[in-house]
Design a protein around this nucleic acid. Structure first.
Lengths: 263, 263
DNA sequence: CAGTGGTCTAGACCACTGG
DNA sequence: CAGTGGTCTAGACCACTGC
């Protein structure tokens, strides 16, 4: 096993590194560094959009070589937790400032171009989690949750409804969330979650199916009942694989499609 | 600009590397190495499943350090073109030997478990490419193509049809492809394409929509006409981003879902 | 045991950013 | 110009595989 590193003491001199022979469970130094940096991110030591210390700085703190820090940061950048910018520094990834309005929305219009969609909030209320929602959000049935529904409408003069989203959030994390604040906020919703509530989505899992529109949905999406819709159930996670959002979307794929890349 | 490397001469002594100052378009050495290795892969110098030369070997051939070769190989491994195996070597990725039967099939049963599905070939014929197919396969309308259709049926005693695939392949690349050879071949179809026709899929793009089953499809999938189906249009590419397969799948998502991970 | 990939180091130099 | 990330090197040593 390589040397063990200690957590850095930001305002203190570097700490010692113990050299130790290989143990039963081998964990490379750079993985340990990665873990330490991840914990700092999780603790909010560096806020989204801010720069983290330079590689040489971190190397000195952790008492390892720059190359080792580099490899740790490389992986965190590959995981989209950090963003490297040559000549400037390494920054905590953020949803707020990025140009891609919808990082997780894979819906594309058939005629390339315009990614912009108008939002219309339908309702936003505090309630108790139904059993199925509670299970997915990893909380107890009946716990406080925020439920909100909204429409996304295609850009342009017509502005036809394309997406109906139903979003469930843990009430404990989103205390002051109201319809007004949602309506007022410009920019992506995940950006607001980040800056207003300190909740950063880093990963999501989706289950996609086709189903027929029920009467209520059909009316909202301006299609006939029974119309085939794409059902996208997305569970989003923050640090530590903690689920923090359940989003059930119904997409009208007449003039849009869900784009995916396989490698 | 770093030194320029020359293609290796497998059976010859290493070639010289010219040191040159930075030019207008900067390309790191490891990128050049990556390009050279990619070309060798493309040319079929090393076949899928085989080991490529060791890092030290390649470093000697290219007259660069092991670290530089390492970085090139790291990226190729991240792109799923190579597979590293500690203590054994680096191997050309293959569809044939991998346990994951369907590398690109994201369909999962609602009750976890069994990924296995039975195949049933419906038809396989040589014909001329319709305009839309030709456009996507980057060939001329009317060019020879192979069209085949098949069903995937859920495992178990019932064996209900779940997927109806319609597959289009360029005729020039798949000369001896017949229904018999397809039926006889065990293992994934992409494995057969690789070992029998030397065509290796490395990447794919999918467009997903929901649509209503027409009469013919409904009958094949044993659902009612109008039943909502997931439509998955997949375009697969080989080396050099050359499209070599168009696959139009219709999925019954009553007891299965399309799984996706977002990062 | 030799050969492979994997980790780690120390140092040199390059490319990019901004004051 | 100083400071940042990016490339490249040479060498040491470790972990894993298979003979």
């Amino acid at each position: 096993m390589p040397a063990d590193v200690s957590p850095p003491n930001p305002a203190a001199p570097p700490e010692a590194v113990d050299a130790a022979p290989a143990g039963p469970s081998f964990s490379p130094l750079y993985q340990q560094i990665k873990g330490l940096i991840t914990r700092e991110l999780q603790a909010g030591v560096w806020k989204p959009g801010e720069a983290i210390p330079s590689e040489l700085d971190l190397a000195a703190r952790f008492k390892v070589s720059q190359g080792t820090v580099r490899k740790a940061i490389d992986e965190l950048a590959a995981d989209n937790l950090l963003v490297r910018r040559q000549g400037k520094g390494t920054f905590v990834a953020t949803h707020a400032e990025q140009q891609i309005q919808y990082r997780f929305l894979r819906l594309m219009p058939d005629d390339g171009g315009g990614r912009g969609m108008a939002r219309r909030l339908l309702d936003c209320r505090r309630t108790r989690a139904p059993a199925d929602v509670a299970r997915m959000l990893d909380c107890k049935s009946g716990d406080a949750v925020v439920q909100l529904r909204r429409l996304l409408l295609s850009d342009g003069p017509a502005g036809k409804p394309v997406v109906l989203d139903e979003i469930w959030l843990p009430g404990a994390l989103f205390k002051g969330l109201t319809a007004e604040r949602l309506a007022d906020y410009k920019g992506p919703m995940y950006g607001m979650f980040e800056t207003e509530f300190g909740v950063r989505m880093i990963r999501a899992e989706e289950k996609i199916r086709a189903l027929a529109a029920d009467a209520a949905t059909a009316s909202l999406l301006a299609v006939a009942p029974g119309f085939p819709l794409l059902s996208v159930e997305r569970l989003s996670f923050t640090y530590g694989d903690k689920p923090v959002e359940l989003r059930r979307g119904l997409y009208n794929t007449e003039q849009h499609f869900y784009r995916n890349e396989l490698n």
